[in-house]
């Protein structure tokens, strides 16, 4: 479904992606792992066109992302951002229903609000949160609202950028379970980037490890612990000794 073919991206002299090749099948939950600053976010932002890659090609269902109707393309995606990226000036329900209040997916206001409240319920938030503003919510609640916004229009493909960063272990577990449940029940294709191994085991069907600008290893999550790839071994054991430099 999503194919990245030899993607390169540099910022000045910093060559972040040096030939990333990755394929995600329809309905699959792919988790990209890797250390901080290895280009995980750049990779998924390249797919969405938020970052222009320097060379290589990215296709979704065989169609290059740079061709075709951009709005229709983006309507297929939902994304949960690392910090939630909720709009401060809008209430919670208006954040969740953002796409339903404008553009090609526009619905009547009451209907959009009902859908937003339903999605908030789906992520474990009650209706009384709907009229609050993001600044009035805890970090965990903001993540849930971000998740509700990502699934508001039942997208085919959902990206999760560091979904558990900054959360306590219990809330991380709740978010991980929610992501897994939602992806399964929606039948969506999911790409998650994280360096939290608990998230990897809870969310992933397949895992790809990004290091030095390339996919160092990829395979089913069931093979992750058995692999003898030294990069993966070092990463999942959290060891300072190994091919990955501890000081970057």
């Amino acid at each position: 479904m999503i194919t990245l073919d030899n993607i390169h991206k540099s910022f000045g002299n910093n060559h972040v992606l040096r030939g990333v090749n990755l394929h995600v099948d329809r309905g699959e939950s792919m988790v990209i792992i890797g250390g901080s600053g290895t280009g995980k976010s750049i990779t998924i932002k390249s797919v969405l066109g938020l970052v222009k890659h320097d060379s290589g090609s990215i296709t979704v269902d065989g169609q290059d992302i740079d061709t075709g109707d951009r709005d229709a393309f983006l309507a297929r995606f939902g994304m949960l951002f690392q910090g939630g990226a909720l709009f401060d000036s809008l209430s919670v329900w208006q954040n969740v229903a953002f796409r339903l209040l404008r553009g090609s997916l526009k619905r009547p206001k009451d209907e959009a609000r009902d859908i937003a409240i339903e999605k908030l319920r789906r992520v474990g938030l009650t209706a009384d949160v709907a009229d609050r503003f993001p600044s009035e919510l805890s970090g965990g609640m903001q993540k849930r609202v971000g998740l509700a916004r990502a699934i508001a229009t039942n997208p085919e493909i959902i990206f999760f950028d560091e979904p558990t960063t900054g959360l306590d272990p219990i809330m991380s577990g709740v978010i991980n379970d929610l992501i897994r449940e939602i992806v399964v029940e929606m039948g969506a294709t999911a790409v998650t980037i994280t360096h939290d191994m608990t998230s990897v085991r809870a969310i992933a069907d397949k895992v790809a490890m990004l290091h030095n600008g390339v996919i160092q290893w990829s395979g089913p999550v069931s093979e992750l612990d058995a692999t003898d790839d030294p990069f993966v071994r070092q990463f999942i054991t959290g060891s300072a000794d190994g091919p990955i430099e501890a000081i970057r």
């Binding site: 932002k45 969405l48 066109g49 938020l50 709005d71 983006l74 309507a75 995606f77 939902g78 994304m79 951002f81 690392q82 910090g83 990226a85 909720l86 709009f87 401060d88 953002f98 796409r99 404008r102 553009g103 090609s104 997916l105 916004r149």
Partner: peptide, 12 residues
């Protein structure tokens, strides 16, 4: 805070 990126992903 990536709100601009979020706008783009929300087709805006």
């Amino acid at each position: 805070t990536e709100q601009i990126d979020a706008l783009v992903t929300l087709s805006t």
